Amino acid sequence: MESTVTASPDSVPETDVRDSSSLLEEEGEVAADYLEELLDIADLDGDIDIDVDHGRAAVEVVADDQSSLKHLVGKDGEVLDALQELTRLAVQTRTGERSRLMLDVAGYRAGRRVELTALANETIETVRSTGEKVALDPLNAFERKVVHDVVTAAGLTSESFGVDPNRYIEVGPASA
């Protein structure tokens, strides 16, 4: 049985009325509040930069002495990944919306993006010269996204296989 629901303009939820940029700005503000509290609890000095990047709220924790924030990054960015998930949950709790917020601490992700772009470009050259697929070592979701974007922009194919934390990418020649 099919049913139709009509809503008056007064019954439309507030989040449907606001534009996406203001929602992303709100995500950034909520995340900044959450992270400021965390920095206070951990007795760490840092500033919070908020931006919107590629349709996502982007928040970065920076400090004059970036090394003072290394505990928030952890080995291979593991603490940063966990902190990002906690921050996304704080945003979701406050806004009622699932967050795709990207968090960076002390420029870790920005530096990693440069490294991964170089790796992807080297892999692209190998695939082009051999015509064979190349499998990369396991990468986290952020890292896989960077590689997929570079490979796609170069006109080749990439596909993820496996299950985290062993999920990896295979780069192949352009599909015919």
Rank of each mutant, 00 (worst) to 15 (best):
R18G: 00
D19K: 13
D19V: 00
D19M: 08
S20M: 09
S20W: 10
S22W: 13
E25M: 06
E26H: 07
E26V: 01
E26T: 03
E27D: 07
E27C: 02
E27P: 00
E27K: 03
G28S: 06
G28P: 02
G28A: 05
E29T: 04
E29M: 10
V30L: 14
A31I: 01
A32I: 04
A32K: 14
D33P: 00
D33A: 10
D33I: 01
Y34I: 02
Y34T: 02
L35N: 09
E36P: 00
E37S: 08
E37P: 00
E37C: 04
L38N: 07
L38T: 05
L38R: 11
L38H: 08
L39R: 13
L39A: 09
D40M: 08
I41T: 09
I41Y: 14
A42G: 00
A42D: 06
D43Q: 13
L44E: 10
L44F: 12
L44M: 13
G46F: 07
G46D: 01
G46E: 06
D47P: 00
D47F: 05
D49R: 08
I50S: 01
D51Q: 10
D51M: 03
D51V: 04
D51N: 09
R56L: 11
A58Q: 12
A58R: 15
A58E: 13
V59M: 01
V59C: 02
E60M: 06
E60C: 03
E60N: 08
V61L: 07
V61D: 03
V62C: 05
V62R: 15
V62N: 13
A63S: 12
A63G: 06
A63H: 08
D64W: 04
D64M: 06
D65K: 13
D65A: 08
Q66E: 15
Q66D: 14
S67E: 15
S67D: 15
S67T: 04
S67N: 12
S68C: 04
L69D: 02
L69F: 04
K70R: 15
H71D: 12
H71E: 10
L72C: 06
L72D: 00
L72K: 04
L72R: 09
L72N: 00
K75H: 14
E78Q: 15
E78F: 07
E78Y: 14
V79F: 13
V79S: 08
L80M: 12
L80C: 05
A82Q: 14
A82H: 11
A82L: 15
L83D: 08
Q84P: 02
Q84F: 11
E85N: 10
E85T: 05
E85S: 06
